[in-house]
Every structure is written in structure tokens, then in C-alpha cells.
């Protein structure tokens, strides 16, 4: 089979208090998820402003996923509620511009959900792999 030689570059923003710990747990439990996922730890999901997401795409990411605590469980009480509105509007705008919607995702992953973390990443990577290289958001100046 000559299907995917291609390995996508995935950026995952993970909040320190839940999802990052969830990723840790996935690791501790020896759960597999692709090494193409590059995790960036943020203090809270709402630390991620839309520019972070766009920058990641500009610098060559093929998919960007943002993980935070479940609604109601944010370490700072309400950060993820703001994240939810912000990302709803941003993703809807990206869709409006004709960018494939499978390239972006928000997922709530708690510190206890190592399995969910691994499953989410596997699924996300699979979807992005199917889409192939990110052409619509690439920046020619950032090409190496």
C-alpha cells in the first residue's frame, strides 16, 4: 500500500491543569498516540488567543487542537467558557473562509482521562492525515 507516507504536523495546546496531566497519564499508562502531535502547555485553555492557532498554521501545522478542562472544571473557574465562545467564532470564520474544518478541534480532557487523550489524538491525526497537507493556510515565507 502506498497510502500515507505523509505524516501530518499536529499542534496540541493543552491546559496545564487537566489536559496536560491527561497527556501525562496517557504516557504513564503506555497508551499510544502518534508522535506527530506536538504539545504546547498553556496555563489555561483561555490563554490561547486566535493568533496562536493561526500562527501554528502559518508555521506549517496541518492541524491544531486545543484541549482544556471540562466546562465547569476550569482551574480558574471560567476560563474555558471564554475559550468555547472564542473558538466557536474563530472556527466558524475559518470554515467561512473555506478552510477544512477537520483541521481544528476543541476537546475537553480531564487529568483522569488519559485514555480519552490518546483516543482523541489518534482520531484527530487520522482525520488530518486524510486531508493531507495544509495548503490553504500555508505561508510561503515560513517554508523551510
Amino acid at each position: 500500500m502506498q497510502v500515507n507516507e505523509y505524516k501530518p504536523l499536529i499542534v496540541a495546546f493543552c491546559c496545564n491543569w487537566c489536559s496536560y496531566a491527561g497527556a501525562d497519564l496517557a504516557g504513564n499508562n503506555r497508551l499510544n498516540y502518534p508522535a506527530d502531535v506536538k504539545i504546547i502547555r498553556v496555563p489555561c485553555s483561555c490563554r490561547v488567543n486566535p493568533m496562536f492557532i493561526l500562527r501554528a498554521f502559518q508555521r506549517g501545522a496541518d492541524g491544531v487542537i486545543l484541549c482544556g478542562c471540562h466546562p465547569g472544571d476550569c482551574h480558574y473557574t471560567s476560563g474555558n467558557y471564554y475559550t468555547r465562545r472564542r473558538m466557536s467564532l474563530l472556527f466558524s470564520m475559518l470554515d467561512y473562509l473555506g478552510i477544512e474544518r477537520e483541521r481544528t478541534r476543541v476537546e475537553w480532557v480531564s487529568a483522569a482521562e488519559g485514555a480519552k487523550f490518546a483516543a482523541t489524538m489518534n482520531d484527530f491525526v487520522e482525520k488530518v492525515t486524510a486531508l493531507g497537507e495544509n495548503k490553504r493556510l500555508e505561508d510561503l515565507r515560513c517554508k523551510k
Binding site: 466546562p71 465547569g72 471560567s78 467558557y81 471564554y82 468555547r84 465562545r85 472564542r86 473558538m87 466557536s88 467564532l89 472556527f91 466558524s92 470554515d95 474544518r101 481544528t104 478541534r105 476543541v106
Partner: peptide, 15 residues
């Protein structure tokens, strides 16, 4: 954008 409700749509639902 500087407000929220507990039952706001998820980003995937919004899209």
C-alpha cells in the same frame, strides 16, 4: 465575547 453561558454551543456544534 467577554461573556458566557453555561450551556453555550461547543465549537464543533457552532461550525
Amino acid at each position: 465575547i467577554v461573556d458566557y453561558k453555561l450551556d453555550d454551543a461547543e465549537p464543533s456544534e457552532a461550525v
